[in-house]
Amino acid sequence: DAPDEFRDPLMDTLMTDPVRLPSGTIMDRSIILRHLLNSPTDPFNRQTLTESMLEPVPELKEQIQAWMR
């Protein structure tokens, strides 16, 4: 099983494109984008959230890719 820090906190699946929300939570980009289609909010604190506020986490993405090899 993947380490917890590699798993999306909402869907508990392996992240492939991790992004940091303004709240500091790291999620998979595809999952948070799907959530934003229904509700333009951070799913953990209900603060306003837009796609432009998502910050890529390239170092975590590299760690996940290395773990998958």
Rank of each mutant, 00 (worst) to 15 (best):
D1W: 14
D1E: 14
D1I: 15
D1K: 15
D1L: 14
A2V: 15
P3F: 05
P3N: 05
D4N: 14
D4F: 15
E5Q: 12
E5D: 10
E5F: 12
E5A: 12
F6R: 02
F6M: 07
R7T: 06
R7S: 04
D8C: 10
D8S: 03
P9L: 05
P9G: 08
P9I: 08
P9Y: 06
P9D: 05
P9Q: 06
L10F: 09
L10Q: 05
L10D: 02
M11Q: 10
M11G: 09
D12I: 07
T13I: 12
L14H: 04
L14R: 02
L14I: 15
L14C: 08
L14A: 03
M15E: 01
M15T: 00
M15F: 02
M15A: 03
M15Y: 03
T16S: 12
T16V: 13
T16W: 12
D17F: 07
D17T: 03
D17R: 03
P18K: 01
P18L: 05
V19N: 02
V19K: 00
V19H: 03
R20P: 01
R20Y: 05
L21R: 01
L21N: 00
P22H: 05
P22M: 02
G24C: 07
G24V: 03
T25L: 13
T25Y: 15
I26K: 01
I26S: 01
D28N: 04
D28L: 04
D28E: 11
R29H: 07
R29F: 08
R29K: 13
R29T: 04
S30R: 12
I31Y: 07
I31A: 09
I32P: 00
I32T: 00
I32K: 00
I32D: 01
L33S: 07
L33W: 05
L33N: 06
L33P: 00
R34P: 02
R34F: 11
H35M: 11
H35R: 05
L36A: 00
L36K: 00
L36C: 06
L36I: 09
L37T: 12
L37W: 10
L37Y: 11
L37K: 14
L37S: 13
L37A: 14
N38V: 14
S39Q: 09
S39E: 11
P40R: 12
P40V: 07
P40F: 09
P40K: 14
P40T: 11
T41V: 09
T41A: 06
T41G: 05
D42A: 02
F44D: 02
F44Q: 04
F44H: 03
N45C: 08
R46D: 14
R46A: 14
R46V: 07
R46L: 14
Q47W: 09
Q47D: 12
Q47Y: 08
T48L: 15
T48K: 13
T48S: 13
T48P: 15
T48W: 15
T48N: 12
L49C: 07
L49G: 00
L49P: 00
L49D: 03
T50N: 13
T50M: 10
E51H: 09
E51C: 08
E51M: 11
S52E: 13
S52I: 10
M53P: 02
M53S: 06
M53D: 12
L54R: 00
E55S: 10
E55C: 09
E55M: 13
E55H: 08
P56K: 06
P56C: 09
V57T: 05
V57S: 05
V57F: 08
V57A: 07
V57I: 10
V57K: 03
P58G: 07
P58K: 09
E59V: 09
E59N: 09
E59Y: 13
L60G: 00
K61H: 07
K61W: 11
K61T: 06
K61G: 06
K61C: 08
E62Q: 13
E62N: 11
Q63S: 10
Q63H: 08
Q63A: 15
I64D: 01
I64N: 01
Q65K: 12
Q65D: 14
Q65R: 12
A66Y: 09
A66H: 10
W67K: 03
W67Y: 10
W67C: 05
M68I: 14
M68W: 11
M68P: 03
M68D: 06
R69L: 14
R69Q: 14
